[in-house]
Design a protein around this nucleic acid. Sequence first.
RNA 1: AGGCGUGUAGCUCAGUGGGAGAGCACUACCCUGACACGGUAGUGGUCAAGAGUUCAAAUCUCUUCACGCCUACCA
Length: 887
Amino acid sequence: MCSSSDPLTKNFDHHEAEGRIYSLWEKSAAFRADPEKGGDPFVIVIPPPNVTGNLHMGHALDNTLQDILTRYHRMLGDNALWVPGTDHAGIATQAVVERHLAGEGVSRLDLGREKFLERVWKWKEEYGGRIIGQLKRLGASCDWSRERFTMDFGLSRAVREVFVSLHEEGLIYRGDYVVNWCPRCRTAISDIEVEHEDRDDSLYYILYQGVNGGPSLTVATTRPETLFGDTAVAVNPQDSRYPRTGDFQVRLPLTDRVIPLIRDAHVDPEFGTGALKVTPAHDLNDFQIGKRHNLPIVSCVNQEGLLTAAAGPYQGLDAASARKKVAEDLEARGLLVKTEPLRHAVGLCYRCRTLIEPLISLQWFVKTAPLAKAAKEAVEEGRIRLVPQSWERTFFDWMDNIRDWCVSRQLWWGHRIPAWYCVKCGKTVVSRGDPSRCPDCGGGLERDQDVLDTWFSSALWPFSTLGWPDKTPDFQRYYPTTVLVTGFDIIFFWVARMMMMGLKMTGRVPFRTVVLHPLVRDASGRKMSKSKGNVIDPLTLIDAHGADAFRFALAAQAGTARDLKISEERVQGCSRFVNKLWNAARFSLSHIANLPTIPGPLSLDLPSRWIRSRLNSAAKDVGEFLNSFHFDRAADRVYRFFWDEFCDWYLELIKPALYGKDGEARESVTRSLYGVFSAALKLLHPFTPFVTEELWGKLPRADALLTLSAFPREDPEKEDQEAEREIGRLMDLAKAVRQARADFRVPPGVKLSPAARPRDPATAALIEEHSSLLLKLTGADSIRIAKETEAPPLDAARTAFAWGEVWIPLSGRVDLRKEEERIRAEKERLEKDAEKARAKLQNPGYLAKAPAEVVEETRERLEEMIEKLKAAEKSLELMEGMRRNRD
RNA sequence: AGGCGUGUAGCUCAGUGGGAGAGCACUACCCUGACACGGUAGUGGUCAAGAGUUCAAAUCUCUUCACGCCUACCA
């Protein structure tokens, strides 16, 4: 009768278990994918984290969701592959190493390119493994044998192949263009790497005096220091304040230069004075105006952000001090008409938040329009699905308005651009190999100094990691990948570019579905940042509460909202669930340990049939939710199944049998428990992999790994409506007794003797059959079936159901006045609801148009309400009668 | 300026055409032989406001308000 000695500690020791279990998975090559094996491919490529980075909350969420999907599909029998890897992260990594060198008093220029790169590689070797270890602590079931790095040999080869072939097609070109220049990083960055922020600035009104009797104009500008780069003043051709025809010139203030007045439709007559200073070298729009009007280009700010010789005496000043000085000097000469405050958006470098200096320079570009068109079509035609779909519109807008992508970066760490320039004839050679001589003149070649934007290699990630451009078995089996999981903040940086490159280079979509999850915020919804001091370290939470609790907290909150507010309390809450699981296991295993044989007859009793039916429903729902990427609802469903249905009802319902004298029943119930419990572990595994794997190992005869077992699938045969209906009635009864006990404050020691009056003999039989169960659930003393004609005593708590009535005699414990009040209130509520239902059923429109089953349901509900009302009325009648007698 | 999103119980959020839900918090009772990180029973909401469509609206449409995010060539 007694269970064997307790094999489990009271709580799950995640510190001890997690590392051990992860090595077990690794040793068993559980996550290794095999292209030779069968099964539908299910493939995810990881959004590669920065190779020298640390796991942050965003990674934690992103990878938890990927892991849930991968484990789920692996258990479904799909050929699941999760490709891991890291990104070289050009600017970020170079900046970190440079900062480190600065500590030694060395700059990268001191070292030279080659030595500097050696140091970065060394840095990478030293810190590159860290984030991989952190992903493992999270439980990520990646195939580590396929780990890639964006600067691996194979991936570099893919980069070069793409660059050269796009160049051959004319989709990559080199040209002079106004680019976003970060004077601190000393490199160009792409348009989307610029962050915009509203700043309070001044708008300076500067007088440009007319020459030869022509009109003078006042122009409004926020950047007076760039006037040295002005090569025209422009007004709108429709603007009547200015001469619409005729050639005029104005004097450029503080200089002896004279520039023309031009007319261009770009100028907004409403802004400032309607006259615009045109600075083609330092403003993209001015650059375009300049092109239209063949204006000369004068650079007055250099790549260090300092004014050039074109600024005469101002040469060498930085932009901010030049602005001040220019304004002063203009004022001194009476050329500064006025200044007014202006709040406007300024561009900042996304990495260092330095003010962006637009300036003209020679850069490499990808011609994006044709690539973007293909990407847009793939989404329009449903070959790529965005989840949630609401992102499509934003995506389309961006694809329609995309500008060419500046891909050269003035850095050393990255894929060096495969372009060479002939020192003799100036020819540009772009080549897959490393050429040594100019093919035209035989002259020497110098390689382009720049590297490619980090996102260029990231854009190839879904196919470069699988071996492309070779037709490897992996590429053939696993490309296109299945799902891409990432935050919506990098749709344009990464997702769109993978689509463009994938479609262009492989002719196929890189993935079929893009799952865009929320961004992790702190508990009050603020973005986490070091400066705000509100960063929560995922590893701290894993240490404190375990990876399972942490993952569950993330999954349970990964809904369709854009923010996910994480807090330690939340994770702690989920650790209670893990604890519940552990203790339910402790209980279950102590009984399972007594099973003589695992194979054998299963219990056919009501609780066993019921939980099998509920398990089936949970498996169905969890599967559906995961298939539609509703992680939050899947987590909620599995939680409810385990806690409410399995623990709170099922385990309690089978206790009498487990402790009972009937050996045969005990054995079959235990065997059923074994089956349901192991299925529950499977259902939970994708969410809480460590604790479930640990418990699986404690099950007898479970030699294989849980992570490689089969996920429970819906099986209509397991649905048991009869069992559900019957347990539902027993639950009604139990709840009625418990409620009466609570409402009338019956002390636990006092026994109750409820009576039930079901309306059909089957329910009566059901109650009699399970009376001992009911006694156990309610703490009642006895339970009986009342006679048809029997009237309940006056001082009884009465509850009515569609199937009949229950009353619990409470001699002396009922405050009649209070009870009468309660019943009256309930009666009122019932009458209201019943009236609503009745009105519905009398409405011809409702009867004609509502679906039959909805009408039927309403009818049933009304019937139940009528039953309850009858009971309530009877009680009130009796009470009134008694009061009359007394009076 | 445009686009997108959000507004449901004190807090965090599910629900997206047919009886207002969960977790946490709160209240009362209970250490009942897995779990007090537990059990049982409760309190709590004109589903932001208004109008419309419908037999039926938290759910669809329009308008308004509040908050948030993204994009943009007002210098």
